[in-house]
Computed example of a mutant assay.
Amino acid sequence: MIDQSITLAGKAGHEIAASVDGPELGLPVILAHGGGQTRRAWRAVAHRLASHGFRTIAVDMRGHGESAWASDGAYDISDFAADLVEIAAATASKPALIGASLGGLAGIIAEGKCAPGSFGSLTLVDVTPQMEPSGVARVVGFMAAHARDGFASVEEAAQVIADYLPHRPSRKASAGLAHYLRRKDDERFYWHWDPAFIERVTQQGGGVSSDHGRTELSAAAACLTLPVHLIRGGSSDLVSLEAVKHFQGLVPHMAYSDIANATHMVVGDENDAFGQSILEFLLGIHEAEMKS
C-alpha cells in the first residue's frame, strides 16, 4: 500500500488527516510534523521507512493541512499530545513516534505526562525542553507575520520563505508550495493552518520557551523511560549544545545524532542524512519486534 489518505480520531474525536504507507502488519511509526507544516514534510522519510517494512502514519496535526481546525482554540501542547495518544491507542501494536518541533514537544508531553507507555520509542527532531528564546521568537515571528493577511500570489509566499531560509538555494514558486497554501474567495493565498494556532502561542509568551513551558517539558522528559533519540540540526538556533546536555541529564539513556549543515528545519535541509539516522535508530531498537 502506498501513501493512502485516511482520517483518524484525535482527542474527543477531533478529525486528523493522515497518510499511511508500508505493509499493514509492519511496526507502526507515527510521524508528527512541526508547527506550520503538514504531513507532506515526511514524504521521503515515510517512503524510506515503508520500504524497510515499517507502517508509517504521517499526520496533519490539528489545525494544520487537512485536519480539522479547533473551533474552541484548543491548541495547547497538551491538546496536540492528547491527539497523538488517541492515534497511538488505535494502532495494531505500540508505535514508534517521530516528532519534529511541535510534534516532538507534543510527544514529550504525551509519553512523559499524559499517557506513559503509549509509544515504543520517541525520536525528537531538533527540540528539547530548553529551547532558545531567540530562536523560538524567530519562528513564531515568521509564522505570525502573514497568518491573517496572506499573500497576493504563490510567488510572494515563496519569496517570504526564501528570506526566512537564506541558507537554502533560492527556488521559484513550485507546485509543492501550493500544497501549503489555500486560495480563498478574496483571491489571496493563506497558509494551510489555522491562524488561531500561532495566536495561541503568542498569547502564551512563546509557550515552550516560557519558564512554565520549560518546567513542564523538563518534568515530562525526566519521566521518559522508553528508547529516546534526539536529532539536532548542527546549525540549529533553537537547540543549543547546552540544551542537549540538559536533556541528557534528564534522559541519560537517550541516543543522540547531530546532522551537519542542517538548521532547525532538519527534514528539509538534509533529508538523506536525516532519514538514514532515523532508519538506523528504529531498526536497532525495534528489530526484534519486526521479526516477530
Score class of each variant (00 low, 15 high):
Gly22Tyr: 00
Glu242Pro: 01
Val208His: 04
Ile198Gln: 04
Gly107Asn: 02
Gln159Tyr: 05
His64Leu: 10
His47Asn: 15
Pro28Asp: 01
Met131Pro: 15
Asn261Phe: 08
Pro95Val: 02
Ala152Leu: 09
Pro195Met: 09
Phe189Cys: 10
Ser5His: 08
Val201Asp: 00
Ser19Phe: 03
Ile30Asn: 03
Leu97Gly: 04
Ala175Arg: 06
Val20Arg: 01
Gly73Glu: 06
Ala137Phe: 08
Leu241Arg: 14
Ser257His: 09
Met143Tyr: 05
Val29Asp: 03
Met290Ala: 09
Asp237Leu: 09
Gly103Thr: 08
Asp21Pro: 04
Leu102Cys: 09
Thr215Asn: 10
Phe54Asp: 04
Ile231Ser: 04
Ala152Arg: 11
Ser153Tyr: 12
Leu226Trp: 03
Glu216Ser: 13
Ala115Ser: 11
Ala260Tyr: 07
Arg188Gly: 04
Pro133Arg: 03
Phe197Ser: 08
Leu102Thr: 10
Ile109Gln: 07
Leu8Ser: 08
Arg168Gly: 10
Glu24Ser: 14
Gly107Tyr: 00
Ala50Thr: 08
Met61Cys: 14
Leu217Met: 15
Ala220Met: 11
Lys113Cys: 04
Thr225Tyr: 09
Arg171Tyr: 02
Thr7Lys: 12
Lys172Thr: 09
Gly135Cys: 09
Pro169Ile: 04
Ser235Gly: 07
Arg171Cys: 03
Thr56Glu: 04
Arg40Gly: 14
Gly176Glu: 15
Arg39Gln: 13
Gly249Ile: 06
Ala74Arg: 11
Ala92Asn: 11
Arg148Val: 13
Trp69Glu: 07
Ala17Asp: 05
Leu31Pro: 11
Ala81Asp: 01
Val267Tyr: 01
Asp126Arg: 00
Gln159Gly: 04
Pro129Glu: 01
